[in-house]
């Protein structure tokens, strides 16, 4: 049996009456890239906070490499590295000082910390800014430094909370390359994202979270196949999406759909037929008002 990097069972968390996680079940095999997909407020960050020992769950079990996040905190902390949604960097220190500080706190000697900091500054294209205080860094530089800090020592699992939010396309690609190279080295990656393309590009397995529940799991391919082989997209005159309809793409099926549609939509409704994307999966699973008819 494959070893599990993350195992979550019947996990619940509420803030007052606001239920954030409502019985989460997950299993992430070691050495894989796992993507947790969901819109804002779905509970992604709360789940990451529980798995990284920052927040205590109300009920249920969460284990990281077999260690319980509530009762074996230190063992879990030894196995994880977290790059949160907001850069966890020290503003008043320079980039290099940040890296060296984390090196020392991770058990490296002063000289090892210095050497590792130099390596990472080069690797993340931050050498020029190494001696500048982080508060002068741009958003992209902060993100890069943040990720570099997470990699000062090799931990078996890296949590990335919306790592590419706010990054330009080039930086996003660069980050994807880093993530894939970490997987090559055997690091398990647990990332959250709103970008469905990201899960499609990176993840071995993905889960869709909505309203505090996992509404679908599988490989990105499996998730896509749940929606059919083709998607018919309906847009109004202002190009607003009205409806997605799954179809097998045959004339017979399309004719049937057309017959149904002509009764309920105006004549200027625009149609297009395409392959389903992760976005379709996402919409279909998380936004019931854009309901997708079964093929």
């Amino acid at each position: 049996m494959t070893e599990l990097a993350v195992q979550v069972m019947a996990l619940r968390k509420a803030y007052g009456k606001q239920v954030v996680l409502d019985g989460i079940e997950l299993a992430v095999p070691a050495g894989s890239i796992f993507a947790l997909l969901g819109p804002n407020g779905a509970g992604k960050t709360t789940l990451i906070h529980i798995l990284t020992t920052l927040v205590a769950a109300d009920e249920g079990v969460a284990r990281v490499f077999g260690c319980d996040v509530a009762s074996e905190k230190n063992a879990v902390k030894s196995a994880i590295s977290l790059t949160g949604q907001f850069a966890a960097v020290d503003e008043m220190l320079t980039g290099e000082e940040n890296l060296r500080m984390i090196g020392r706190l991770s058990g490296l000697s002063p000289s090892q910390s210095r050497a590792r900091a130099a390596e990472l500054l080069t690797g993340f294209d931050l050498t020029a800014a190494a001696g500048k205080r982080v508060k002068t860094y741009s958003g992209g530089m902060r993100r890069r430094l943040d990720l570099a800090i997470s990699l000062v020592v090799d931990r078996p699992i890296l949590f990335l909370d919306e790592p590419t939010t706010g990054l330009d396309t080039a930086s996003r690609r660069a980050l994807w390359d880093i993530i894939l190279s970490l997987k090559q080295r055997g690091v398990t990656i647990f990332l959250t994202t709103q970008y469905l393309e990201e899960a499609d590009q990176l993840a071995d397995t993905a889960a869709v979270i909505s309203g505090g529940r996992i509404v679908a799991t599988g490989t990105p391919g499996e998730l896509k196949s749940r929606i059919g082989t083709e998607v018919l997209e309906l847009r109004d005159e202002n190009d607003g999406l009205i409806r997605l309809i799954a179809t097998d793409g045959t004339l017979q099926d399309l004719r049937q759909i057309m017959n149904d549609l002509s009764l309920s939509f105006p004549g200027n409704t625009k149609l297009s037929l395409r392959k389903p994307s992760m976005d379709d999966v996402f919409l279909a699973l998380t936004a019931p008002e854009l309901e997708v008819a079964a093929p």
Binding site: G31, S78, L93, R104, P156
Partner: peptide, 23 residues
């Protein structure tokens, strides 16, 4: 890397405090 990682690799209390005082 894929073997279970259960070792508690805590940095000494002294080092931790020295680093934070320096900071």
């Amino acid at each position: 890397m894929t073997t279970p990682y259960k070792a508690v690799q805590s940095v000494s209390f002294l080092t931790t405090n020295a680093v934070f005082i320096g900071r």
